[in-house]
Every structure is written in C-alpha cells, then in structure tokens.
Design a protein around this nucleic acid. Structure first.
Lengths: 196, 196
DNA sequence: CCGACACTAGACAGATCTGTCTGCTATCGT
DNA sequence: ACGATAGCAGACAGATCTGTCTAGTGTCGG
C-alpha cells in the first residue's frame, strides 16, 4: 500500500530527520498536529525519541518544520505545474486545476495551514507560517491577474483567494471534488469579466 | 468585561446545564474543542464536575451539544435576518450580509463546525453534526436561488457555498472582513448572470 | 416534616503527553 | 586504530486529561 521505493542500491535509507519529517507530514495532516503525539510520530518513523528532540528541539519545532516543508512543497508544486501553460489566462486557471487534482485525492483533508491553526493557540508559531503562506498565495494570484491583463489585479486576486479557500473547505467537508469544478468556472467568468 | 446582565429580579440564575453550554460555547469556539479541557469549562461555568457528567454524559456529549446549539442558533439567526428583505435577490445576498456582520466581530474565529472537525477523528460525533449543517446551508442557497429565478438553482447554490466557505476562511486567517465584501460582489454577479 | 432531587467541592484512578536521561551500537573521517 | 558523531531503546519525571466516587448542602413538593 505504502509507496516505499524498492531497495535502491544507490540511495541509502533517508536520514532520521527526513523520516521524522515524512512521518509528521503524514500523521499531522491526516489527524491533526495536536491529536498526534510524539510517540506516534517516532514509532511511525522508526526513530528514537532523543533523535527527534536533538533534530527539532520540541514538538513545536517539529510542527513548524512540518508546515514550512508543506509551504515549500506547495510553492514548488504550483510553480512547476504552471510551467506547462502557455497563456496567462491558462496559468491563472491552472492554479485551480492543481487544487482540483489535490482535492480529488482520497487523502485530501483540507488546507494543512488552516487545520493546524484551528487547533493551535492564536499567538503561537503556527500563525506565522500561515501568514507567510497566505501572503504568497495572494501575491501569486495578484501577479497572475496582472499578467492576464486584469483591470484591478488586487481586487480580482481577493476574489480568487475566496474561491480557492472555499474549494478547499468544500472538498474536505463534503468529501467531494465538486466544489473545485464550480470554483474554476466562477474563476473563469471573473477573469473574462475583468479583462473584457 | 463580560456581558453579564444586571440582577434581574424576574430571571433567576440560569440552570447549571445552560451555564455549562454557554461556557463550552465560548471556550470551545475561541480555543478549540480539543485544546480546552473539562476543568476549564466547569471552572468558567461555576459548576461541579459531576454536574457536567450527569447532564452530558461525556466530553463528546458536551461537544455534540455545543455544535447542535450552534447549528440551531445559526439557522435562527439567518432566517430571522432574511425576513427584513423584500425581494428574493436581496434575501439571497442577505446571507452574505449576515456573514459579513459576523466576520467583522473581533471574536470571529471561522466556522465552528470546520474548526471542530479539524481537531476531531474523522468518524466521530462531530462529523455528523457538520454534515447536517452543510446540508442545511446548501439547501438554503438552493431554495433562495430557485426563488430568485436562477436557471440551475443547484449549480448556483454550489458556487455560492464555495463563496460562503471561502469568506469564512479568509476572515479568520487574514483577520479581516475584506473577503466578505469581495464574496458578496461575486455572488451578486453570479446571480445576475444566472437570471438574465 | 421529610424524602427526592439537583448541585457543590474535591479527592482519586488511570491514561496519555512532553521532555530528559542513561547506556549501548554502528559508522566514518583522520 | 580511534575518537566523534549519529542514532537506537527504553526508563523516568512531571504535568494534564477524562471520568468516577464520596460526602455534604440547599431546595421544593407533598
């Protein structure tokens, strides 16, 4: 079931840090950063507890590393996917295509940043990473809207962010990717109206 | 600071059950159902622990009662607010006005159902109440879209739900009610296009 | 007057969680 | 060959959480 790669003679076993991060990613995202305890993470990673604390300092440090890694991979995933589109319009709508693909996966559980924020104190380390992630998304939509020739890129970006967030919520709560197609259609209509 | 009503000679002190529900509502919504412990709830309510367990059976029972009460009050709030509008179009957009008012409150912390879902096991009691709440919202938008003369009420409702969810997320994560006005504008445009 | 009932205060058991510490093993650069 | 480093296994302390239990107080209907 798990996608463990077959024993590759060149690539050795990942480091303890990487295995911890992979285990944290899977468990934290599926069940929540607060619900999952340290013992479950180290058991899933096959790593000693002392190794976790020497690598990340605390559970908060591990949560922060988990979210920063999510942020980094999300940026790479979207930017890479957008390269295959030729027109600014397709690139902008392509952000919703990437989200639709994610939302169709059975392991999709909504936005990891919002989820972590919902079970964390409002002044903790989680909010800072969330703010960075949201600023990046808004900036991405603003840039794409400008390149696509929107009259008011910031205003269009604000609307697109609402659609993006709503898709994520709907896909999780309704266990259905239907929201993604609805949001993409609205985004296309908004873009056409903003560039006409 | 707290809005405790002055000693009204007619209204006696609320029952222990009501005080527990009020304390759970405040603490669970502000800090999360998993983060807040039983001891904090009973201390805030001024109630003995045995009373909580005799009234709600378990913490899960209290969480369920908290969410059901939220669901009940949300329906009443929206239906009451919609009575003041005369046209079907104003009633449909009025749902976003109610949300905008909520999102502008400093104590707004997003959708209580999504928040509780994000920190609960996926097969627990939380999901059932969430499903009921989402079905009600979708049905409300479908009814309003039909009354407003939309050609495809279900399709329009799906788009409006995305906008509604996205507004809630944006207002919480960005600590700003700007998403509400953006969503209302998009909803108005969608409605006009669907009834033209 | 009295018994049922609702409630309070707080101790307690058992589980779970974070974080530390000790002791051991294997690998690698010099 | 050897010291440094990374990692493993697991005990342990201290805090916190849910849920139960005992014992006592006040109130109200009959």
């Amino acid at each position: 079931m798990s996608a463990a790669s077959p024993p590759n003679p060149v690539a050795p076993r990942p480091s303890a840090r990487d295995r911890l991060l992979a285990a944290a990613d899977e468990l934290f995202y599926a069940q929540g950063v607060h619900t999952v305890g340290i013992d479950r993470v180290i058991e899933h990673a096959g790593v000693a507890k002392a190794t976790l604390y020497s690598a990340f300092g605390s559970k908060d440090g591990l949560i922060r590393a988990y979210l920063e890694d999510r942020h980094r991979r999300r940026r790479a995933r979207i930017l890479t996917a957008l390269e295959r589109f030729d027109t600014p319009r397709d690139r902008l709508l392509g952000v919703f295509d990437v989200l639709a693909e994610l939302a169709a996966s059975p392991s999709f559980r909504g936005c990891p940043f919002y989820n972590a924020s919902a079970e964390s104190p409002p002044d903790g380390v989680v909010q800072q990473v969330c703010d960075e992630n949201r600023a990046w998304t808004r900036g991405l939509f603003t840039d794409l809207a400008r390149e696509a020739g929107a009259r008011d890129p910031e205003a269009l970006a604000a609307q697109l962010v609402v659609l993006y967030d709503g898709t994520s919520v709907g896909a999780r709560m309704d266990r259905s990717a239907a929201a993604a197609t609805a949001a993409r259609a609205v985004a296309a209509a908004l873009l056409d109206a903003a560039t006409a």
